[in-house]
Design a protein around this nucleic acid. Structure first.
Lengths: 338, 338
DNA sequence: TCAAAAGTGTTATCCTTACACCCATGT
DNA sequence: ACATGGGTGTAAGGATAACACTTTTGA
């Protein structure tokens, strides 16, 4: 019999490696019908010219909560007052942040998504808005299936699966081939726009994204050389972006967070374009309008906007009362495969 | 104009307070039709006799990932080989873990849920299984609306809202009264079994749970003395439990995680009882069976189980192929208000 | 025999999907 | 005139919710 104490073991020698905590934020806005994230340009030589996400230290003495700390340094450094903030995930893998042979402090990074209404102008303190599909181009299905999938990604992943299969003979509930089908919607499986992170991680495992090489994964194998699929970022920042996209794409369907990206009043078509930007897919116009209006998510302001390119459109605003009426109010859209 | 460097500020004096990272796990099993979590008994005097969740240090030198570290110390200390593990949230609030006047290291805890199939027996290294509704009794609606809601919780929260309202005159999209309605399903709003965390946090803010007093919240006000609603835990462990419940109650509806709690084969009624235990509400029997069978989630093993208390029942097993057939396979149940 | 659980069948209702079609504006 | 976006109507199909009812065991 062991004592209760054992569930709170004292640190052993060697356990007490220094740990630093950093906060990393995917700050999202939509302009020009495209989802933009705030990036910081490469500066240190170790970054290999790769952009990153804004990153700040956790300062427990100055801020009571993690979120307060995040809001504070984002405002100080970019001038942006972020509205909606949500914690994503805490990333602690060794080998992601570290360089080989590194014995420096271990960095644990806590990832966040923030949503913001912005005018593109303004001093961002060295930051810069970039279309998030620059980093994950296979996620944008608004103009049909991205060519990069059939031309680059699918053949390489099929080869990777084929070469991997014989080596992986232990029992697994889902085989690598199944994972490929599920993630990328192959062989009759439907594309699921929420699986952004799963797709990125599969590409990472297969050594097909630039970060995998930088992290010294055993990628120097048969399917080399590979192109960088999408623009790489430093450290694990692209993984955090993928996590943010997954979370947002799921969340707008059952929480009214999309309105954090909209102006006070908007046309239904503007709302649709914003949802489509986030989801990366087309929606059926008539049904979208009905779902959103009948769902009680918006109400007309009474105003009208001209110069929309067509007939003047009624303006709408978010209707906060839905929160009391429905348990999970969001843009319950079912994307249209076109 | 500020330089790009500013988005990576160097630590200032006073910023580099020592930070420790702990992993806290809500380890869940279901037996006797009740959800059980693994707790560790109070030992230190500072715990005020309160149980806690298993807790372990993060040891970056020994384990490459946070999750690997978690699995390892849970196995070492309780002998339990956990299967499904999911990260919940990283809690960093000051004042939750610290005692007043404390200048020791700041603790950031990363919360996890783990699901496990257990025989109740076995040496748990000082741990003990407890029904999770001991800690959050208002969450169990399987035998109708819990009496504690109308008798204790609702009147106290209404009083708290009434006293708070005049002091909170700034504009807020949702008023405290709205929050009360949304969280606890008052005044025509439906009870949403997924809002476990929101409910606990409202009670905490209102000073109605024991932890709020221990954390020196300004609770010494008019609605004192309060009973401890549910059994308190130490530090923020009850909040982590509430987070685990929220996540699980949501997740079983769109991912087949419920089968992590079931044996290899089971009757449909056993499956229903397990789902009900997690959701804390009744399900309509006939429709549950149909949803689960037609949804392709299970398949008959061909075997039959007698001594079920009635007619022998067909045995079923999980059908992993659903993962390829449907984008979000889970027990898509719509709880029945009875 | 009866309680308890296992199962089957059927209907009304709602929601989603997919069409078809008309309206108002700017160029 | 016509392209573009705004906006309405409706019918087919599927999923769900709520019923009623039969079957098979153990105590």
């Amino acid at each position: 019999m062991v004592s209760p104490k054992q569930l709170h073991p004292a640190p052993e020698p060697g356990d007490d490696a220094a740990v630093e905590i950093g906060l990393t934020a995917a700050i999202v806005a939509v302009h020009d019908n495209n989802p933009q994230i705030l990036t910081v340009a490469a500066s240190e030589p170790e970054h290999d010219g790769r952009d990153g996400l804004p990153f700040g230290p956790f300062t427990p003495l100055r801020h009571r909560t993690l979120e307060a700390g995040l809001r504070s340094w984002v405002r100080e450094q970019s001038g942006l007052g972020i509205g909606y903030v949500e914690q994503l995930y805490t990333f602690g893998d060794r080998g992601r942040h570290a360089r080989p042979g590194d014995h420096g402090p271990h960095v644990v990074s806590i990832g966040y998504v923030a949503l913001i209404r912005v005018d593109v102008a303004g001093d961002l303190g060295g930051g810069r808005w970039r279309n998030w599909y620059d980093f994950l181009p296979w996620e944008d299905w608004r103009h049909g299936k991205p060519a990069i999938l059939e031309r680059e990604i699918e053949p390489r992943l099929r080869r990777w699966v084929a070469e991997k299969a014989p080596r992986d003979r232990r029992f697994t509930p889902v085989t690598p081939a199944d994972r490929l089908k599920m993630c990328f919607g192959l062989d009759g499986v439907a594309w699921d726009e929420e699986k952004v992170l799963e797709r990125y991680e599969l590409l990472y495992e297969a050594g097909l994204v630039g970060e995998a090489r930088a992290d010294q994964r055993p990628a120097a194998e048969a399917w080399q050389p590979f192109p960088d699929l999408g623009t790489p970022m430093r450290y694990d920042h692209r993984r955090i972006l993928a996590t943010a996209m997954s979370r947002l794409r799921a969340k707008i369907k059952y929480r009214p967070v999309i309105f954090e990206l909209m102006d006070e009043s908007f046309t239904l078509f503007e709302l649709q374009r914003t949802v489509e930007a986030i989801l990366g897919s087309h929606l059926h116009k008539q049904n979208f309008r009905r779902l959103v209006e009948n769902g009680g998510l918006v109400e007309p302001t009474g105003e009208v906007r001209s110069n929309t390119g067509g007939r003047p459109a009624k303006l709408f605003r978010f209707r906060p009362e839905v929160l009391l009426e429905r348990p999970a109010p969001g843009v319950r859209v079912h994307p249209l495969r076109v």
